[in-house]
Design a protein around this nucleic acid. Structure first.
Lengths: 138, 138
DNA sequence: CGATTATGTAACGCCAGTTGTTACATATGG
DNA sequence: CCATATGTAACAACTGGCGTTACATAATCG
């Protein structure tokens, strides 16, 4: 969904867009979008102004924003299972496995982000446009 | 948690272990473990017998089981955000973006799994043992 | 054979996280 | 000063996963 919002922003090249408009586009509530924009602001991906005639716009050109950045800005939690908040008991394995798994999963997540880095927001826009065009052609 | 259970099984090299024992080790309920074991059975990772004196054991040596297999056996859902089951509206972006994002995320997930493939269950056991030993040394 | 043991499975409650909604304070521009 | 749009809080609704109880089924042992 974050990517979706940013894609719309990229679509409107530089124009300020209100959260209400974005919400309509993603088919959700303006507040949801605003909450999302807060994360994106923290990551310096968008630039938001308050007041009349204001709204948000991209802070960088779409070609210089990659999906890994968006992912990191939005997803703060690990994609893996909650470590089952129980610290485990007297099992010989339970004691030390958590730390090891964290290491391994961190590495896997890094691998995933490296893959996401290869795609820029501009790439997404381009692909979407192409996909829409071909669909229209039919 | 799946890895934890399998690690315990690997620890008990070949012995059949009951779900009750595993549950105690992971500090949870036997039924939870059984549900997990069902997934692992489907993936042919464990071999479970019913009846008295029965239980589960690994179907392969720990060195020949990698974490990507476990991940695939257990996690059936995408690690990414639910595609917000709403099919979106008349927004020009909304129409085609879902498909594109699916492609990209699939690729990222593949990258993650490729990373997980590099670690076998035996590696995890080894690391855990080493970690426990060093902790004991202190 | 029958008792015991352990899995398979369903039904249900519980809890946490996410989404959605309403409401209101605040800032900005005209 | 007023209209507009964000920031934020409070709360309802929904969802997914975990936990628990309960019961049927299967396999082993005496």
């Amino acid at each position: 969904m974050a990517v979706h919002v940013l894609a719309v922003l990229a679509y409107k090249e530089g124009d300020r867009v209100t959260s209400a408009f974005l919400a309509g586009s993603v088919n959700t509530n303006p507040v949801i979008v605003r909450r999302l924009l807060l994360s994106l602001q923290r990551a310096r991906l968008v630039d938001t102004c308050k007041g009349a005639g204001a709204g948000s716009r991209l802070n960088r050109s779409p070609g210089r924003i990659n999906l890994a950045e968006i992912y990191r800005a939005v997803e703060e939690a690990e994609p893996f299972a909650t470590p089952s908040r129980k610290p485990n008991t007297a099992c010989p394995v339970g004691h030390c496995i958590r730390k090891e798994l964290d290491r391994i999963f961190m590495s896997a997540q890094k691998a995933m982000e490296r893959d996401l880095e290869r795609t820029s927001l501009a790439d997404v826009i381009e692909a979407v446009k192409a996909s829409c065009a071909s669909k229209k052609a039919v």
